[in-house]
């Protein structure tokens, strides 16, 4: 796949990352799912039974 300009090869990696909408979607779902939702559910599950 040829880009319109050859210089796009030299674009900073962060620029390529920010231009990738699907990557943004992936990050927006996985980061909170892991750190908030899954970790949070584990916290609830691991609450011990009262004596």
């Amino acid at each position: 796949m040829s880009e319109p300009t050859t210089s796009s090869e030299k674009r900073h990696v962060m620029q390529l990352v920010l231009d990738d909408n699907m990557l943004m979607l992936f990050l927006a779902i996985t980061v909170p799912t892991v750190f908030y939702t899954l970790w949070g559910i584990m916290e609830v599950i691991t609450i011990p039974m009262a004596k």
Binding site: M24, L27, A28, V31, P32, Y36
Partner: peptide, 9 residues
């Protein structure tokens, strides 16, 4: 994108 949604807590 990375962190805003953590505020749900």
């Amino acid at each position: 994108i990375l962190f805003l949604q953590l505020g749900s807590v």
